[in-house]
Amino acid sequence: MKMVFFDARVWRYLISAISKVIEEGVFIVDPDEGLTFRAMDPSHVIMLDMKFPRDSFEEFDVEQRAELGVNLEDVAKVLRRAGKEDRLEISADENSISFTFIGKGYRRFTLPLLDITAEQLPEPQLEFKARVKVMSDVYRDTIKDVELIGDVIRFVASSEEFKVSSTSELGEAEIIYTRESGSLIELEAEDTQQASYTLEYFSDLSGASRVADMITIHFSTDMPALVEHELPQGARFSFLIAPRVE
């Protein structure tokens, strides 16, 4: 099988972020569905979901479904060598997976496949009462701001504003976005919704937002949050995180 993606850096930042939360995982390659990845962290606090439709690839030569078990930390190390103009070719056989950077020449790295099976995780069926869409740089700056203070991130959304905060012995960080400020692309909320989450996961995965256009956060009071990243070429990355209930 062989798949070619137009920008290796998309994979570089995405896999680097994922590898901070999950050490090993399985890429599922399907002739119709493209390449997908879904897994939970060892503590079962967060579920990651990555989807690259077949149409997102320049080339997608896959004849049959395959499960490719990989050490994500090793893959992340390889992908860090991606350059600004590099395309990425992913190929695999029964025993190994190769990542080739196509730019000023061909640079190929081959890693062994792991004998692991993909987790059977169903599609979450949740209804959210708040939905906030922001540009990816706004989201990333927000995470950096609250990191200065605490280890818990709190979302509060109403029909008029979206507030992100963190509190600790050091003090309090509070960031407020309103429709008038222009920082919110979309804001929908039934009444006032508020929930808290472990900030470490947002920090670890914030690197994925570097290659996203927009970030959409769905949540409800004291319920899980779904954070969606819109990636180039119709690809998507999201994570579903359990709340911290005091």
Rank of each mutant, 00 (worst) to 15 (best):
M3P: 01
D7Y: 04
A8N: 04
Y13R: 00
L14N: 01
L14K: 00
I15G: 00
A17M: 03
E24Q: 13
I28V: 14
T36M: 14
M40N: 06
P42E: 04
S43A: 13
H44R: 12
V45N: 08
V45I: 12
R54Q: 13
S56M: 08
F57Q: 00
E58R: 05
E58P: 03
V62K: 01
Q64D: 15
A66R: 08
L68F: 10
G69D: 04
G69I: 10
G69A: 07
V70E: 06
V70C: 08
E73C: 06
E73Y: 07
E73W: 05
V75G: 03
A76T: 06
K77Q: 11
V78Y: 07
L79I: 03
G83M: 06
E85F: 09
D86Y: 12
E89P: 00
I90N: 05
D93C: 04
E94H: 08
N95S: 15
N95E: 15
S96Y: 07
Y106C: 02
R107H: 13
F109C: 01
T110R: 04
T110Y: 03
L111N: 02
P112Q: 01
P112D: 02
L114N: 02
I116G: 01
T117H: 03
Q120A: 13
E123K: 01
L126Q: 00
L126P: 00
L126M: 08
K133D: 09
M135L: 14
V138F: 10
V138L: 08
R140Y: 14
R140C: 05
I143A: 07
I143W: 11
K144M: 12
D145Q: 04
D145I: 07
V152G: 04
R154D: 15
F155K: 05
V156R: 15
A157H: 13
A157F: 14
F162K: 01
K163L: 15
K163P: 00
S166N: 05
S166A: 14
E169Y: 05
E169F: 08
G171S: 03
R179C: 08
E180K: 08
I185E: 14
L187Q: 07
E188I: 07
E188R: 08
T198K: 07
S206M: 12
S206Y: 06
R210A: 13
R210T: 12
R210H: 08
V211W: 04
M214C: 11
I215M: 09
H218M: 13
T221R: 06
T221L: 11
D222Y: 09
M223N: 10
A225D: 09
E230A: 14
P232A: 00
G234Y: 09
A235W: 11
R236Y: 15
S238N: 13
F239N: 02
I241W: 11
R244A: 13
R244K: 15
R244W: 11
V245F: 04
